[in-house]
Simulated scan of single mutants.
Amino acid sequence: MPIPTLTAPNSAGRILIIYASYGDGHLQAARAIRDALERQGVEPKRIKLVDLMAEANPLLNEVSRRFYMHSYSKMPTLYGWVYDRTRPMKHDSLFGGWLHSFGKEKLRRLLLSERPDAIVYTFPVFAAPSSRKSLLPHVPTSAVVTDFDLHCRWVHPHVDRYFVATDELKLELMRLGIAERRITVSGIPIKQSFTALRPNPQWFARYGLPEDRPIVLIMAGAAGVMPDVPEVCEALLQDNAVTVALVCGRNEALASSLRARFHGQLSTSNGGRLHLFGYVETIHELMAIADCLVTKPGGITLSEGLATGLPLFIYRPVPGQEKNNALYLHSKGAAHITRNPQELSNAVRSLLYDPIRLAVHQQAARALGRSGAADTVALDILRQCLIMEEASSPTHY
């Protein structure tokens, strides 16, 4: 389906996109929106991506990122407890106000120097929305929720537009008092390469994968933090008909340990059925030729899998937004949740060798997939810019 286009306003098109580097998803969503805006005719130099915490306070950002990753992987119960306890918090609560205060001065200076025509957040750090009302009164602010779950940190009275993944999230925002007209069910922004994606036979050869065997794609996360990866590989490889393609992300330590552990089963060996990859920029190609996806339940990866129509197997989801992501997709018949390697292996084999169930799960995934989310967000942002430009024009009556 062709992408609708909207001519960018003559004086508009300066877009500020705020993200954070807690995980890879917020940046990926920001880049997807940037690319969609460029497809609509906005000049690249007019789009600025800002990691607000990193630029405002590099030391605090690094310490908090390390604490986030440590608590997420080493103390998941504590992480989930904090997430659940703060989930209903209000923006003007003591904790909520503290969280939204980080980067306030940096954002104020950015607003004055960049004079953006629109501000887009892919991470909920609304550092200066109140001051921007006086600094830039005609600038629309949008929040792009990057999970299938809603933490109230995303809800702020000075956000003009919300973009969410599902109808359920829209209803939840409405119950919190957000007007329906301010909410768009866009999906979570992902790369354009996932739009109308079809397998290309050349991709099997490109990645050294067989065309005549089931391919189980494992994505351990950009930082390679999915638990029990070696044990999961061992359990899956018990089936001699299965090929495993494991994406280790940027975790070279994980890749090295797996090379040593599975030396005789790697694709470099005769008949090896375990294929290791680092960070894969063209991940859509691997997803297109895989038969199912095993992953940690980050919003971006799940959205990519859904757009591809892949049956999803979510392994030991961490309490918090990722567990809630998993539970939502499980309730829609698009994902299995498994707790140990053997349970995962049994579930994968059960599905792969049952064509009817496999087709049902593929259809459930495609029904939830929204590969055009980034274009939906970009078009809406430019419409807001046009409305504001017309409203502020001296010839407007």
Results as ranks from 00 to 15, higher is better:
Thr5Met: 08
Thr5Gln: 15
Leu6Ile: 15
Thr7Trp: 09
Thr7His: 11
Ala12Met: 05
Ser21Ala: 09
Tyr22Thr: 11
Asp24His: 03
Asp24Lys: 07
Asp24Ala: 14
His26Ala: 03
His26Ile: 04
Ala32Ser: 12
Arg34Asn: 00
Ala36Gly: 09
Ala36Asp: 05
Ala36Pro: 08
Arg39Val: 05
Gln40Glu: 11
Lys48His: 07
Glu55Met: 03
Pro58Phe: 02
Pro58Leu: 01
Glu62Arg: 11
Val63Glu: 00
Phe67Ala: 15
Met69Asn: 08
His70Tyr: 12
Ser71Thr: 12
Tyr72Trp: 12
Tyr72Met: 10
Ser73Glu: 04
Met75Arg: 02
Thr77Ser: 02
Tyr79Ser: 00
Trp81Arg: 02
Arg87Asp: 00
Leu94Lys: 03
Leu94Thr: 07
His100Lys: 06
Leu107Ile: 04
Glu114Lys: 01
Glu114Gly: 02
Arg115Glu: 08
Asp117Gly: 14
Asp117Lys: 03
Ile119Lys: 02
Val120Ser: 01
Val120Asp: 01
Phe123Val: 03
Val125Leu: 15
Ala127Leu: 02
Ala127Lys: 10
Ala128Pro: 05
Ala128Arg: 00
Ser130Glu: 10
Arg132Thr: 14
Leu136Lys: 05
Pro137Met: 05
Pro140Tyr: 12
His151Asn: 12
His151Trp: 10
Trp154Arg: 09
Val155Arg: 02
Val155Leu: 12
Pro157Asn: 07
Arg161Lys: 12
Ala165Ser: 06
Asp167Leu: 06
Asp167Ile: 02
Leu169Asp: 01
Lys170Pro: 00
Leu173Tyr: 08
Met174Cys: 01
Gly177Arg: 00
Gly177Asp: 03
Ile178Phe: 01
Ser186Ile: 14
Ser193Val: 13
Leu197Gly: 07
Arg198Val: 15
Pro199Phe: 14
Asn200Met: 06
Pro201Phe: 12
Pro210Asp: 03
Glu211Ser: 08
Asp212Cys: 08
Leu217Gln: 04
Gly221Cys: 05
Val225Ser: 03
Val225Ala: 03
Asp228Gln: 14
Val232Gln: 03
Glu234Ile: 10
Ala235Asp: 02
Leu237Gly: 09
Asn240Thr: 05
Thr243Gly: 01
Val244Met: 04
Cys248Lys: 06
Gly249Arg: 08
Ala253Asp: 11
Ala255Met: 15
Arg259Thr: 10
Phe262Ala: 09
His263Leu: 11
Gly264Pro: 00
Gln265His: 12
Leu266Phe: 11
Leu266His: 09
Thr268Asn: 11
Thr268Cys: 11
Gly271Ser: 10
Glu281His: 14
Glu281Arg: 13
Thr282Gln: 13
Thr282Tyr: 13
His284Ala: 13
Leu293Arg: 06
Leu293Val: 06
Val294Phe: 07
Lys296Ile: 06
Thr308Gly: 07
Thr308Val: 13
Tyr315His: 09
Leu327Ser: 04
Ser331Glu: 00
Ile337Gly: 08
Asn340Gln: 10
Asn340Gly: 05
Ala347Gln: 14
Ile356Leu: 08
Arg357Ser: 14
His361Val: 07
Gln362Arg: 15
Ala367Phe: 04
Gly372Phe: 08
Ala373Phe: 08
Arg383Met: 09
Gln384Leu: 12
Glu390Ile: 13
Glu390Gly: 15
Ala391Arg: 06
Pro394Asn: 11
Pro394Tyr: 10
Pro394Thr: 14
Thr395His: 02
